[in-house]
Amino acid sequence: MAISLISPTLANSNEGPPLLAVARSSGSVRVTHSHRHARGQLLGAAHGLLSVDTGRSRWVVPATHAVWIPPDVPHSIRSHGPFSGWSLYLAVSACAELPEKPCILAVSGLLREAVMRAASWPGQTFSAAQTRLVAVILDEIRTLPQVPLGLPMPQDARLLKIAEALSDSPHDSRHMKEWAQWAGVAPRTLTRRFVAETGFSFTEWRQRVRLLKALEMLAVGRSVTAIALELGYDNVSAFIALFKRVFGVTPGRYNGLMR
């Protein structure tokens, strides 16, 4: 089990400051088993993909977005690749105007920079300037749009094994039958259950996890050609066409809208 981002005592207390911020990086995969705490949590990655399980929902989320987890909601987290991310823990009093259910939020550059500043504060007693920045952070969170971006994860252990491997390595181009053999499941069963448990066929699911990774790569300035080739597309045109079909704009246009 990964070491908690903050102490369980702080996470489970609504006393003290309304907001606690933390940022962590590690060279290994982060796996946090199911737990809950009294404070609400907004969790994001600096790079890479995160899997977040809240019991009723399980998503893969790119670094361009964050997951909101209301107070007392059980959840577990897994990073795909070395972990580098941030988290805000909000007292119940600060959650009144935030969503009542777990959801995915688009994150602004302003919020990221403010979180990094707050994560550097050494104590829990805030100066007047720090208190003003906390108010800015809370206002920013309240206005973040909810987005249906997360990719549902299957519940079947064999399918989940495949989904996690693809999230770790979206470029892996093994055929469906090879994945089925690797996970010890019949190809027909894999095909049927992937649709039943995620709403996507195996091929569609794999395409979308690649697109989530592409969002992160676009955000850090990678070229469309480099992204397409690194993620295993046969040609750049195929990548652009799929991206536009899913997101409604080309990768270049999407990147311009996010700036």
Results as ranks from 00 to 15, higher is better:
Met1Ser: 11
Ile3Ala: 14
Ala11His: 03
Asn14Phe: 03
Asn14His: 06
Leu20Ala: 07
Val22Ala: 14
Ala23Phe: 03
Arg24Ala: 13
Val31His: 10
Thr32Pro: 00
Thr32Val: 11
His35Thr: 11
His35Cys: 06
His35Ser: 13
His37Leu: 09
Gly40Asp: 00
Gly44Met: 13
Gly44Pro: 01
His47Arg: 14
Gly48Phe: 10
Arg56Glu: 15
Arg58His: 12
Val60Ser: 09
Val61Lys: 05
Val61Asp: 00
Ala63Glu: 13
His65Asn: 13
Ala66Ile: 01
Val67Cys: 12
Pro70Val: 06
Pro71Phe: 08
Asp72Ala: 10
Asp72Cys: 05
Pro74Val: 08
His75Glu: 00
His75Gln: 08
Ser76Tyr: 01
Arg78Phe: 00
Arg78Asn: 02
Arg78Thr: 11
His80Cys: 06
His80Ala: 07
Pro82Met: 05
Phe83Ile: 00
Ser84Thr: 12
Trp86Pro: 00
Val92Thr: 14
Ala96Ile: 12
Glu97Cys: 07
Lys101Leu: 12
Cys103Val: 14
Gly109Asp: 11
Leu111Glu: 05
Arg112Lys: 12
Glu113His: 10
Ala119Phe: 08
Ala119Ser: 15
Thr125Ser: 10
Phe126Trp: 10
Phe126Pro: 02
Ser127Pro: 03
Thr131Gln: 15
Arg132Tyr: 03
Val136Thr: 15
Val136Asp: 14
Ile141Asp: 08
Leu144Arg: 08
Leu144Ala: 15
Leu144Gly: 02
Val147Arg: 12
Val147His: 03
Pro148Gln: 09
Leu149Lys: 03
Leu151His: 02
Pro152Trp: 06
Ala157Asn: 03
Arg158Gly: 07
Arg158Leu: 07
Lys161Ser: 15
Lys161Leu: 13
Ser167Ile: 06
His171Ala: 15
Arg174Ile: 07
Ala180Asn: 06
Ala180Lys: 06
Trp182Asp: 10
Trp182Pro: 01
Ala183Trp: 09
Gly184Ile: 07
Gly184His: 06
Arg188Gln: 13
Arg193Met: 11
Phe200Asn: 09
Phe202Arg: 04
Gln207Tyr: 08
Gln207Phe: 06
Arg208His: 14
Arg208Asn: 11
Val209Gly: 02
Arg210Ser: 11
Leu211Tyr: 02
Leu212Ala: 07
Lys213Pro: 01
Leu218Ser: 05
Ala219Arg: 10
Arg222Leu: 07
Val224Gly: 05
Ala226Trp: 01
Ile227Ser: 04
Leu229Ala: 12
Tyr233Met: 02
Ala238Trp: 02
Ile240Met: 09
Ile240Ala: 05
Lys244Asp: 11
Arg253Thr: 15
Arg253Ala: 15
Leu257His: 02
Met258Phe: 00
Arg259Gly: 07
